[in-house]
Amino acid sequence: MAKIKGAVVIDKDRCKGCDLCVVACPADVLILGQEVNGKGYNYAQVANSDECIGCANCGYVCPDGCITVYKVKL
């Protein structure tokens, strides 16, 4: 069976740390980090890139359009 692997790129400068992508991710790929961006937000980060399945749920729910999602079939 073909395995699917995804990758997420987060525009950390646009991110407002709302956490909705973290909640939406079914694979616990994302976290809000300790670091803050230029606006003082704890921006979202990829913590477990290996788990990403490229479902793009994080991208859909992001109100600020910060997330780009890529996916390949292995």
Partner: peptide, 25 residues
């Protein structure tokens, strides 16, 4: 391999909405 990204017609202006606001979606 891109499957999702910011829509082409959305520009780069930072949105004034509060974090998590439904308006953005």
């Amino acid at each position: 391999n891109k499957v999702y990204g910011k829509p082409r017609l959305m520009n780069d202006n930072p949105m004034h909405y509060c974090p998590g606001c439904s308006h953005g979606v």
